[in-house]
Simulated scan of single mutants.
Amino acid sequence: MSAGERGRLGDVLLGAVGSLGLDLPPEPAARMSSARARLGLPAATKACVVLVDGLGGHNLDQRSGSAPFLTGADRVGSVRTTFPSTTATNVTYLGTGWEGGRTRMLGYSVRAAPRAVVNLVSWNGPAVPEQWQAETTVFEHLEQAGRTAVSVGPWRFADSGLTRAAWRGGEYAAAESLRERVDTAVAELRDPDVDVVYLYWGELDSHGHRHGWQSPGWEELLAVTDAELDRLARLLPPGTLLLVTADHGMVDVAAHERIDLAGREDLTRDVDLVAGEPRAVHLYCAPGSANAVAGRYRAALGEQAQVLTRAEVIDSGMIGPTTPAAAPVVGDVVVAARGNQAVMDSRSQSAASLALVGMHGGVTDAETLVPLVVVQG
């Protein structure tokens, strides 16, 4: 682990529940106890877990002056996300404790049928969330034990595919602005029947994608986020454990650092389907061609990316232990950015997605190390 690194993102919710000392079945209880020990969490009576989408540790360090609460002394460590460093994968990693090799949540989009792609954020495609991601969530473990967990987020996510994949088993409390979400979270925590509250905030990520995390507007949003989370910490009921983390960081990718597959016969030959995202690409190839495709991508990208076959991805452990159901979801070739470049595809991507500035998905520390802020109420 790097300096200040305390564990993995999948430990955070598990460890938070483990700190409550609830009477749960042996298997999830053991996982929760181990996660709590890895993170060094104190005992608590309730837990509140906040996920700030897109707030990487590098991003926070570089804008620490705008986040005095989040960067306060003795509060901040870091945890490592799983690959790819993207929302669908890591929100589910947080919500279940399992990496994509078990959950099949292996990117922004993946192949769901020979010629069909499913988007694991919007769920446009041939997949039912509860069937696609069949692992028991942490909230389902709580529900089965007669305990109550609540997700706080925008109304449009109340029954979304990602909520059903990662957070089923809990109740949902809709609130729009961050201030409203903080107020709602506090009200839920004051309910004696509620054990755990999860609060999601996605505006930093949205702004970073459109304008870049180095834009003035991103820093202004960070300051607002920091102030509201400070207020949340001050309003916590006594004995409540607050954990603030993120699903990934973000890098800004300049126009000259983008490779467009359109017109690149060397990079499209034998590739039947392209999925994933620009810094974590799944290439589904014609039978028997994966090694040749991988070789051409290695020649084109050099040190800017790890280019791996499916077997290499699975054997490396970068997506965790992989089940037979998840293995075919992995691209025949996977391109994982480790430099500044991104692989775009103007043949299929919308103009809006091609215009995005901030990106993530790759294997750099800027994308995979995220903060863990621990506050005892």
Rank of each mutant, 00 (worst) to 15 (best):
H58L: 11
P84L: 08
G65R: 04
A43G: 13
G65W: 05
A67S: 12
P114N: 13
L41R: 03
L41G: 07
G72M: 12
G100H: 04
T82F: 00
S64M: 05
H58K: 12
T87D: 03
T45W: 01
A73K: 13
A43P: 10
L70I: 10
C48Q: 08
R38N: 11
H58R: 10
F83E: 12
R104Q: 11
S122H: 13
A44D: 08
A116K: 15
A43S: 15
G100K: 00
T71I: 06
A37F: 05
A37P: 02
D61A: 15
S109N: 13
R80V: 03
L55D: 11
S78R: 11
W98D: 00
M105I: 08
D61W: 08
L55Q: 03
V118G: 15
R75C: 08
V49A: 14
A112T: 11
L94Q: 12
Y108M: 12
D61T: 10
G57I: 13
A112W: 02
V76W: 07
L41A: 10
P114C: 14
T45S: 15
G65D: 07
G95D: 07
S64G: 02
T71F: 10
L51C: 13
G107C: 01
A37M: 13
T92G: 03
D61S: 14
D74S: 14
V50S: 03
S66L: 08
P114F: 14
G125C: 09
P114W: 11
K46P: 01
A37L: 09
G125S: 06
R102A: 12
W123M: 02
G57M: 02
P42W: 01
N90K: 13
T81I: 00
S66C: 09
S64I: 00
R111S: 10
D61R: 13
G97E: 06
P68Y: 02
G107I: 12
A67R: 03
M105C: 04
L120T: 13
R111E: 06
A67K: 05
P84V: 07
A73Y: 15
M105Q: 02
F83R: 05
R115E: 12
D53K: 05
L60E: 07
G65V: 05
A44Q: 08
A112N: 09
S66Y: 09
P42C: 01
G97A: 10
G95W: 11
V117Y: 08
P68H: 03
E99Y: 00
T45F: 01
G40M: 08
V50D: 09
T89R: 10
R38P: 05
V110K: 00
